[in-house]
Design a protein around this nucleic acid. Sequence first.
DNA 1: TACTAGTGGATAATAATTATCAACCAGGAG
DNA 2: CTCCTGGTTGATAATTATTATCCACTAGTA
Lengths: 144, 144
Amino acid sequence: MKNRDEVRELFKAKKVPLTHQRLAVYEELSGRKDHPSAEALYESLKKDYPSLSLATVYKTLQTLHEMGMVARVDSPAAQARYDAIVETHHHAVCTACGRIEDLFDPRLDTLPAPKAEGFVPSGHSVHFHGLCARCAKASAQKTR
Amino acid sequence: MKNRDEVRELFKAKKVPLTHQRLAVYEELSGRKDHPSAEALYESLKKDYPSLSLATVYKTLQTLHEMGMVARVDSPAAQARYDAIVETHHHAVCTACGRIEDLFDPRLDTLPAPKAEGFVPSGHSVHFHGLCARCAKASAQKTR
DNA sequence: TACTAGTGGATAATAATTATCAACCAGGAG
DNA sequence: CTCCTGGTTGATAATTATTATCCACTAGTA
Protein backbone atom coordinates (compact mmCIF):
# COMPACT_ATOMS: atom_id res chain seq x y z
CA MET A 1 0.00 0.00 0.00
CA LYS A 2 1.82 3.06 -1.29
CA ASN A 3 1.09 6.55 -0.08
CA ARG A 4 0.36 9.41 -2.43
CA ASP A 5 3.94 10.72 -2.54
CA GLU A 6 5.35 7.30 -3.38
CA VAL A 7 2.86 7.03 -6.23
CA ARG A 8 3.85 10.46 -7.47
CA GLU A 9 7.51 9.39 -7.45
CA LEU A 10 6.79 6.25 -9.44
CA PHE A 11 5.00 8.21 -12.14
CA LYS A 12 7.77 10.78 -12.28
CA ALA A 13 10.43 8.07 -12.51
CA LYS A 14 8.68 6.47 -15.48
CA LYS A 15 7.85 9.83 -17.06
CA VAL A 16 4.16 9.03 -17.13
CA PRO A 17 1.85 12.01 -16.51
CA LEU A 18 -0.04 11.66 -13.25
CA THR A 19 -3.64 12.76 -13.65
CA HIS A 20 -6.40 13.00 -11.07
CA GLN A 21 -8.12 10.06 -12.71
CA ARG A 22 -5.06 7.83 -12.52
CA LEU A 23 -4.48 8.65 -8.90
CA ALA A 24 -8.13 8.04 -8.11
CA VAL A 25 -8.22 4.65 -9.84
CA TYR A 26 -5.02 3.53 -8.15
CA GLU A 27 -6.10 4.64 -4.70
CA GLU A 28 -9.50 3.07 -5.06
CA LEU A 29 -7.98 -0.22 -6.18
CA SER A 30 -5.34 -0.35 -3.49
CA GLY A 31 -7.87 0.56 -0.84
CA ARG A 32 -9.94 -2.52 -1.60
CA LYS A 33 -9.41 -6.04 -0.38
CA ASP A 34 -11.47 -7.70 -3.11
CA HIS A 35 -10.30 -7.93 -6.70
CA PRO A 36 -12.63 -5.63 -8.57
CA SER A 37 -13.27 -5.60 -12.29
CA ALA A 38 -12.90 -2.41 -14.32
CA GLU A 39 -16.66 -2.01 -14.22
CA ALA A 40 -16.76 -2.40 -10.42
CA LEU A 41 -14.06 0.23 -9.95
CA TYR A 42 -15.95 2.56 -12.24
CA GLU A 43 -19.13 2.15 -10.22
CA SER A 44 -17.32 3.02 -6.98
CA LEU A 45 -15.47 5.99 -8.43
CA LYS A 46 -18.49 7.52 -10.13
CA LYS A 47 -19.72 8.91 -6.80
CA ASP A 48 -16.64 11.06 -6.26
CA TYR A 49 -15.85 11.68 -9.92
CA PRO A 50 -19.15 11.91 -11.78
CA SER A 51 -17.45 12.87 -15.03
CA LEU A 52 -15.18 9.81 -15.05
CA SER A 53 -15.52 7.58 -18.07
CA LEU A 54 -15.44 3.80 -18.05
CA ALA A 55 -13.00 3.90 -20.95
CA THR A 56 -10.62 5.90 -18.79
CA VAL A 57 -10.74 3.24 -16.11
CA TYR A 58 -9.79 0.61 -18.70
CA LYS A 59 -7.00 2.73 -20.10
CA THR A 60 -5.71 3.59 -16.65
CA LEU A 61 -5.63 -0.05 -15.57
CA GLN A 62 -3.73 -0.84 -18.74
CA THR A 63 -1.24 1.94 -17.97
CA LEU A 64 -0.82 0.90 -14.34
CA HIS A 65 -0.34 -2.67 -15.45
CA GLU A 66 2.42 -1.67 -17.86
CA MET A 67 4.05 0.31 -15.06
CA GLY A 68 4.00 -2.82 -12.93
CA MET A 69 1.79 -1.18 -10.32
CA VAL A 70 -1.22 -3.48 -10.65
CA ALA A 71 -1.61 -7.14 -11.54
CA ARG A 72 -4.35 -8.89 -13.46
CA VAL A 73 -5.61 -11.79 -11.41
CA ASP A 74 -6.88 -14.24 -13.95
CA SER A 75 -6.54 -14.95 -17.60
CA PRO A 76 -4.03 -12.88 -19.47
CA ALA A 77 -5.61 -14.20 -22.67
CA ALA A 78 -8.75 -12.61 -24.01
CA GLN A 79 -10.44 -15.79 -25.06
CA ALA A 80 -11.04 -18.95 -23.04
CA ARG A 81 -8.75 -21.87 -23.72
CA TYR A 82 -9.71 -25.51 -23.39
CA ASP A 83 -7.91 -28.68 -22.40
CA ALA A 84 -8.99 -32.29 -22.86
CA ILE A 85 -6.78 -33.30 -19.94
CA VAL A 86 -8.87 -33.02 -16.81
CA GLU A 87 -6.44 -34.75 -14.45
CA THR A 88 -4.41 -32.54 -12.11
CA HIS A 89 -1.61 -30.86 -13.99
CA HIS A 90 -0.04 -27.46 -14.30
CA HIS A 91 0.80 -24.88 -16.91
CA ALA A 92 3.67 -22.83 -18.21
CA VAL A 93 2.26 -19.71 -19.82
CA CYS A 94 4.33 -17.62 -22.18
CA THR A 95 3.86 -13.95 -21.41
CA ALA A 96 5.03 -13.01 -24.90
CA CYS A 97 3.00 -15.20 -27.25
CA GLY A 98 0.36 -16.71 -24.96
CA ARG A 99 1.39 -20.29 -25.67
CA ILE A 100 0.44 -22.66 -22.85
CA GLU A 101 2.38 -25.83 -22.15
CA ASP A 102 1.24 -28.66 -19.93
CA LEU A 103 3.40 -29.55 -16.97
CA PHE A 104 3.20 -32.85 -15.17
CA ASP A 105 5.08 -32.82 -11.89
CA PRO A 106 3.85 -34.81 -8.89
CA ARG A 107 5.82 -32.51 -6.59
CA LEU A 108 3.35 -29.75 -7.44
CA ASP A 109 0.27 -31.92 -6.97
CA THR A 110 0.33 -31.76 -3.19
CA LEU A 111 0.86 -28.35 -1.66
CA PRO A 112 0.30 -26.92 1.82
CA ALA A 113 -3.41 -26.32 2.39
CA PRO A 114 -4.51 -22.71 1.80
CA LYS A 115 -4.54 -20.56 4.92
CA ALA A 116 -7.92 -18.97 4.32
CA GLU A 117 -10.50 -19.00 7.08
CA GLY A 118 -13.33 -21.39 6.24
CA PHE A 119 -12.21 -22.06 2.68
CA VAL A 120 -12.94 -25.62 1.53
CA PRO A 121 -10.39 -26.47 -1.16
CA SER A 122 -11.24 -28.87 -3.96
CA GLY A 123 -8.05 -28.57 -5.97
CA HIS A 124 -5.37 -26.25 -7.21
CA SER A 125 -3.24 -25.44 -10.19
CA VAL A 126 0.11 -23.79 -10.57
CA HIS A 127 0.75 -21.30 -13.35
CA PHE A 128 4.32 -20.53 -14.19
CA HIS A 129 4.77 -17.49 -16.34
CA GLY A 130 7.80 -16.62 -18.36
CA LEU A 131 9.09 -17.03 -21.90
CA CYS A 132 8.61 -20.19 -23.92
CA ALA A 133 11.62 -21.64 -25.74
CA ARG A 134 10.72 -19.88 -28.99
CA CYS A 135 10.15 -16.44 -27.46
CA ALA A 136 13.19 -16.70 -25.20
CA LYS A 137 15.30 -17.32 -28.27
CA ALA A 138 13.70 -14.43 -30.15
CA SER A 139 14.27 -12.14 -27.19
CA ALA A 140 17.92 -13.16 -26.95
CA GLN A 141 18.35 -12.31 -30.64
CA LYS A 142 16.96 -8.85 -30.17
CA THR A 143 19.09 -7.86 -27.18
CA ARG A 144 22.26 -9.31 -28.64
CA MET B 1 -6.63 -39.74 -24.39
CA LYS B 2 -9.84 -41.74 -24.63
CA ASN B 3 -10.71 -43.88 -27.61
CA ARG B 4 -14.02 -43.59 -29.42
CA ASP B 5 -15.72 -46.42 -27.52
CA GLU B 6 -14.76 -44.98 -24.15
CA VAL B 7 -16.22 -41.67 -25.20
CA ARG B 8 -19.41 -43.39 -26.31
CA GLU B 9 -19.64 -45.07 -22.91
CA LEU B 10 -19.22 -41.79 -21.05
CA PHE B 11 -22.04 -40.17 -23.00
CA LYS B 12 -24.29 -43.16 -22.48
CA ALA B 13 -23.54 -43.23 -18.76
CA LYS B 14 -24.53 -39.57 -18.41
CA LYS B 15 -27.51 -39.94 -20.76
CA VAL B 16 -26.23 -37.19 -23.02
CA PRO B 17 -26.89 -37.73 -26.74
CA LEU B 18 -23.69 -38.27 -28.66
CA THR B 19 -23.78 -36.44 -31.96
CA HIS B 20 -21.25 -36.37 -34.76
CA GLN B 21 -20.43 -32.80 -33.90
CA ARG B 22 -19.74 -33.56 -30.25
CA LEU B 23 -17.51 -36.45 -31.12
CA ALA B 24 -15.66 -34.35 -33.68
CA VAL B 25 -15.05 -31.48 -31.25
CA TYR B 26 -13.85 -33.82 -28.52
CA GLU B 27 -11.54 -35.75 -30.81
CA GLU B 28 -10.10 -32.62 -32.31
CA LEU B 29 -9.45 -31.14 -28.87
CA SER B 30 -7.89 -34.25 -27.40
CA GLY B 31 -5.73 -34.73 -30.48
CA ARG B 32 -4.07 -31.37 -29.95
CA LYS B 33 -1.23 -30.54 -27.62
CA ASP B 34 -1.89 -26.82 -27.53
CA HIS B 35 -4.87 -25.33 -25.71
CA PRO B 36 -7.09 -24.03 -28.46
CA SER B 37 -9.87 -21.49 -28.13
CA ALA B 38 -13.37 -22.25 -29.40
CA GLU B 39 -12.62 -20.21 -32.49
CA ALA B 40 -9.40 -22.14 -33.19
CA LEU B 41 -11.20 -25.48 -32.89
CA TYR B 42 -13.88 -24.23 -35.24
CA GLU B 43 -11.28 -23.23 -37.83
CA SER B 44 -9.70 -26.67 -37.74
CA LEU B 45 -12.98 -28.55 -37.86
CA LYS B 46 -14.46 -26.52 -40.71
CA LYS B 47 -12.36 -28.44 -43.24
CA ASP B 48 -13.91 -31.80 -42.38
CA TYR B 49 -17.32 -30.49 -41.33
CA PRO B 50 -18.12 -27.50 -43.55
CA SER B 51 -21.63 -27.21 -42.15
CA LEU B 52 -20.44 -26.95 -38.55
CA SER B 53 -21.44 -23.78 -36.72
CA LEU B 54 -19.26 -21.82 -34.33
CA ALA B 55 -22.17 -21.69 -31.91
CA THR B 56 -22.21 -25.48 -31.86
CA VAL B 57 -18.56 -25.54 -30.89
CA TYR B 58 -19.29 -23.22 -27.96
CA LYS B 59 -22.31 -25.25 -26.87
CA THR B 60 -20.38 -28.49 -27.20
CA LEU B 61 -17.47 -27.24 -25.13
CA GLN B 62 -19.96 -26.14 -22.50
CA THR B 63 -21.54 -29.59 -22.52
CA LEU B 64 -18.21 -31.40 -22.36
CA HIS B 65 -17.14 -29.14 -19.53
CA GLU B 66 -20.26 -29.97 -17.54
CA MET B 67 -19.59 -33.66 -18.17
CA GLY B 68 -16.11 -33.19 -16.74
CA MET B 69 -14.48 -34.22 -20.01
CA VAL B 70 -12.71 -30.95 -20.75
CA ALA B 71 -11.20 -28.24 -18.58
CA ARG B 72 -11.01 -24.52 -19.12
CA VAL B 73 -7.44 -23.40 -18.73
CA ASP B 74 -7.62 -19.85 -17.51
CA SER B 75 -10.08 -17.47 -16.05
CA PRO B 76 -13.30 -18.93 -14.79
CA ALA B 77 -14.61 -15.37 -14.54
CA ALA B 78 -15.86 -13.56 -17.60
CA GLN B 79 -14.30 -10.24 -16.79
CA ALA B 80 -10.72 -9.43 -15.86
CA ARG B 81 -9.98 -8.75 -12.20
CA TYR B 82 -7.28 -6.46 -10.89
CA ASP B 83 -5.03 -6.42 -7.87
CA ALA B 84 -2.89 -3.59 -6.50
CA ILE B 85 -0.61 -6.13 -4.83
CA VAL B 86 2.09 -7.00 -7.32
CA GLU B 87 4.34 -8.90 -4.93
CA THR B 88 4.26 -12.70 -5.17
CA HIS B 89 1.15 -14.07 -3.57
CA HIS B 90 -1.53 -16.61 -4.31
CA HIS B 91 -5.27 -16.89 -4.60
CA ALA B 92 -8.18 -18.88 -3.32
CA VAL B 93 -10.95 -18.73 -5.89
CA CYS B 94 -14.51 -19.65 -4.97
CA THR B 95 -16.03 -21.78 -7.72
CA ALA B 96 -19.52 -20.86 -6.56
CA CYS B 97 -19.51 -17.08 -6.26
CA GLY B 98 -16.23 -16.09 -7.94
CA ARG B 99 -14.84 -14.37 -4.86
CA ILE B 100 -11.04 -14.25 -4.83
CA GLU B 101 -9.06 -14.14 -1.61
CA ASP B 102 -5.39 -13.31 -1.32
CA LEU B 103 -3.11 -15.93 0.19
CA PHE B 104 0.29 -15.14 1.58
CA ASP B 105 2.30 -18.26 2.27
CA PRO B 106 6.08 -18.29 1.85
CA ARG B 107 5.97 -22.09 1.44
CA LEU B 108 4.27 -21.54 -1.91
CA ASP B 109 6.67 -18.84 -3.07
CA THR B 110 9.46 -21.25 -3.99
CA LEU B 111 8.43 -24.28 -6.01
CA PRO B 112 10.37 -26.77 -8.12
CA ALA B 113 11.33 -25.17 -11.44
CA PRO B 114 9.00 -26.08 -14.32
CA LYS B 115 10.15 -29.04 -16.38
CA ALA B 116 9.52 -27.50 -19.77
CA GLU B 117 12.27 -27.57 -22.37
CA GLY B 118 13.70 -24.11 -22.90
CA PHE B 119 11.11 -22.30 -20.80
CA VAL B 120 12.52 -19.29 -18.94
CA PRO B 121 10.37 -18.78 -15.84
CA SER B 122 9.87 -15.33 -14.38
CA GLY B 123 7.39 -16.19 -11.67
CA HIS B 124 4.42 -18.30 -10.73
CA SER B 125 1.16 -18.22 -8.90
CA VAL B 126 -0.93 -20.87 -7.24
CA HIS B 127 -4.70 -20.89 -7.61
CA PHE B 128 -6.65 -22.92 -5.14
CA HIS B 129 -10.22 -23.50 -6.11
CA GLY B 130 -13.02 -24.55 -3.83
CA LEU B 131 -15.75 -22.97 -1.76
CA CYS B 132 -15.27 -19.79 0.23
CA ALA B 133 -16.47 -19.71 3.84
CA ARG B 134 -19.78 -18.13 2.87
CA CYS B 135 -20.59 -20.54 0.03
CA ALA B 136 -19.43 -23.58 1.99
CA LYS B 137 -21.88 -22.64 4.73
CA ALA B 138 -24.69 -22.09 2.23
CA SER B 139 -23.96 -25.43 0.60
CA ALA B 140 -24.00 -27.22 3.96
CA GLN B 141 -27.41 -25.68 4.70
CA LYS B 142 -28.84 -27.00 1.49
CA THR B 143 -27.65 -30.58 1.85
CA ARG B 144 -28.61 -30.82 5.52
C1' DT C 1 -40.13 -47.23 -39.11
C1' DA C 2 -42.10 -43.77 -36.37
C1' DC C 3 -41.93 -40.78 -32.33
C1' DT C 4 -40.09 -37.14 -29.42
C1' DA C 5 -36.88 -34.71 -26.77
C1' DG C 6 -33.00 -32.57 -27.46
C1' DT C 7 -29.50 -30.73 -30.85
C1' DG C 8 -27.54 -28.06 -34.80
C1' DG C 9 -27.14 -24.18 -37.74
C1' DA C 10 -27.83 -19.35 -38.81
C1' DT C 11 -28.01 -15.26 -36.88
C1' DA C 12 -29.38 -11.76 -33.49
C1' DA C 13 -28.27 -10.19 -28.97
C1' DT C 14 -25.31 -9.32 -25.15
C1' DA C 15 -21.09 -8.37 -22.60
C1' DA C 16 -16.40 -6.97 -22.17
C1' DT C 17 -12.98 -4.44 -24.09
C1' DT C 18 -10.63 -1.43 -27.39
C1' DA C 19 -10.38 2.28 -30.91
C1' DT C 20 -11.46 6.92 -32.36
C1' DC C 21 -11.17 11.75 -31.97
C1' DA C 22 -12.06 16.52 -30.56
C1' DA C 23 -11.60 19.15 -26.34
C1' DC C 24 -8.83 19.57 -22.38
C1' DC C 25 -5.11 19.26 -18.82
C1' DA C 26 -0.27 18.35 -16.74
C1' DG C 27 4.06 19.82 -16.49
C1' DG C 28 7.89 22.29 -18.28
C1' DA C 29 9.79 26.70 -20.73
C1' DG C 30 9.91 31.34 -20.74
C1' DC D 1 2.21 33.26 -13.64
C1' DT D 2 1.13 32.33 -18.53
C1' DC D 3 1.82 29.97 -22.60
C1' DC D 4 2.66 25.79 -25.19
C1' DT D 5 2.45 21.06 -26.54
C1' DG D 6 1.99 16.28 -26.28
C1' DG D 7 -0.46 13.13 -23.85
C1' DT D 8 -5.03 12.25 -21.67
C1' DT D 9 -10.02 12.37 -21.05
C1' DG D 10 -14.75 11.52 -22.04
C1' DA D 11 -18.33 10.11 -25.18
C1' DT D 12 -19.33 6.89 -28.21
C1' DA D 13 -18.60 3.76 -32.09
C1' DA D 14 -16.44 -0.47 -33.19
C1' DT D 15 -14.67 -4.90 -32.23
C1' DT D 16 -14.31 -9.33 -30.08
C1' DA D 17 -15.91 -13.21 -27.45
C1' DT D 18 -19.76 -15.50 -26.00
C1' DT D 19 -24.65 -16.59 -25.34
C1' DA D 20 -29.58 -16.71 -26.67
C1' DT D 21 -33.18 -17.65 -30.04
C1' DC D 22 -35.76 -20.50 -32.94
C1' DC D 23 -37.07 -23.79 -36.44
C1' DA D 24 -35.64 -27.81 -38.99
C1' DC D 25 -33.57 -32.00 -38.11
C1' DT D 26 -31.31 -36.03 -35.89
C1' DA D 27 -30.21 -39.54 -32.04
C1' DG D 28 -31.93 -42.90 -29.37
C1' DT D 29 -35.68 -45.68 -28.23
C1' DA D 30 -40.18 -48.15 -28.78
